[in-house]
Design a protein around this nucleic acid. Structure first.
Lengths: 190, 190
DNA sequence: AAACGGCGGAACGCAACCGTTACGTCCTGG
DNA sequence: CCAGGACGTAACGGTTGCGTTCCGCCGTTT
């Protein structure tokens, strides 16, 4: 019975408000103002700020990225890099994600939500990527998917969401090369 | 004329409060309460929350890490990894840093402070590290110090401050090996 | 001994937000 | 045509924090 267009307006308002002021300073009243909506409309849908944000964010984050399978490890890696690169370049995402990550460090409920929304999927992609590459003989058998995920996401995240330094055109290529070399080397130490 | 012991109490309170609730929710009153101090004592030293936090944080962050020179690239790298690892494992640091980084994305003044306090120094370390390694012939001449810094800090930061997954004993070793291999490869693509 | 000044404590007026309630409007379905 | 329900608006009492002011205490300095 709740009107869909209003729910959409609220969802958008939450995302934008989250990007602008962060979770800590997000207020229901500001969301209502921004959405052009009464507070009542919000409280009719969620019972408080945390529940509202978690539901909305996990819904957005849950839209899963397809597992890559381009036929070669280099192709898969490049694809993932580009997807993450695009995602982290979105103004809203690049504001919200670090903010929620920081918040997750002190709020177990947020942590758990992000965990299930992101990490589970992340892990699956990592394992598939590495598994395929090993099967094709492109990576040594002992390669650790966990390290792989860190090596792939870490530098990109650092650069785009933390350091926020402008990224030269050839940067992504360099990074792809570097990560490939890095992963090939990890198993050799065993 | 301001009493030093009280200044210290306030500084500690700010750091702890920052770790617990984050910048967004940090309140002067809570700091005063925590430090066992009147609000007046705080306003006598700083004129508002932002100024207070910036002064205190940049003071702490400014304590510079010595430039590494162990004689070999592998040694330098391992040393840096361990230093960063230790730093990011501190309860307070691992809470405050992501929080301020997120805050910096929307507050230019915070961004600038962190920039001068961290990035400048970071860059110097990166350039020295890579420069030494190139001089020794351990890295190819075209190696990009910027990529190097991202490859070194990115995965560690991701793991310790974002993902917060427990770290196996051999993880640092694996990472060191991987990063070394990664950096050796980057110049080859030129 | 007296003056100075930082100190904690308490209270100030102001603003924002919380979560709830009451009201009047509008749209929809029976 | 009428009932129901979601809507926006407005107000509620309560809480929290701001930045300021005034007080009385107490250790230093002179």
């Amino acid at each position: 019975m709740l009107r869909g267009d209003i729910t959409v307006a609220i969802r958008n308002a939450v995302m934008n408000e989250l990007a602008e002021v962060g979770y800590g300073r997000l207020s229901i009243e500001a969301v209502a103002r921004r959405a052009g909506v009464g507070k009542t409309a919000i409280y009719r849908r969620w019972s408080n700020k945390l529940e509202m944000v978690l539901e909305i964010v996990s819904d957005v984050a849950g839209r899963s990225v397809p597992l890559p399978d381009t036929g070669s490890f280099a192709g898969d890696l490049q694809l993932i890099m580009m997807i993450v690169h695009r995602a982290l370049q979105h103004r809203i995402a690049s504001q919200i994600i670090p903010d929620l990550m920081a918040e997750a460090a002190r709020n177990p409920q947020i942590a758990e939500t992000l965990q299930t929304a992101l990490r589970t999927h992340q892990q699956a992609v990592g394992e598939k990527l590495v598994g395929q590459a090993i099967a094709r003989g492109e990576l040594p058998a002992g390669t650790d998917p966990e390290v792989a995920v860190d090596m792939i996401l870490g530098p990109l995240y650092w650069r785009l969401a933390v350091s926020r330094t402008p990224m030269p055109d050839d940067y992504l290529d360099k990074l792809t090369t570097a990560v490939t070399a890095a992963l090939k080397s990890t198993a050799e130490t065993l």
